[in-house]
Amino acid sequence: MRAKIFISFKNGVLDPQGKAVERSLHTLGYQEVRDVRMGKYLEVELDAASRETAEARLREMCDKLLANPVIEDYRFEIEN
């Protein structure tokens, strides 16, 4: 199975990179842009007996290492 993991800052955590990108987009004339938040994207190939097992294992991986629960939220999608 292949999982796509998306990690983003929680609301309330400063994201100066997102702000800088937002300013650049405004400079380029994209005034409609209101909020840019930058995050991380990981692809993981894994062996699992079932989708449920894979989800449980991925949640563990995110909680333990891939995301820092103090500052980040995560979600993932699994493809067969």
Binding site: P16, A20, N68, V70, I71
Partner: peptide, 17 residues
């Protein structure tokens, strides 16, 4: 120490980048 939970909070990118 923050990442390992020995201290509370986290350290992120400087606001100035």
């Amino acid at each position: 120490l923050c990442e390992s939970g020995l201290l509370p909070g986290a350290l992120v990118r400087n606001a100035s980048l």
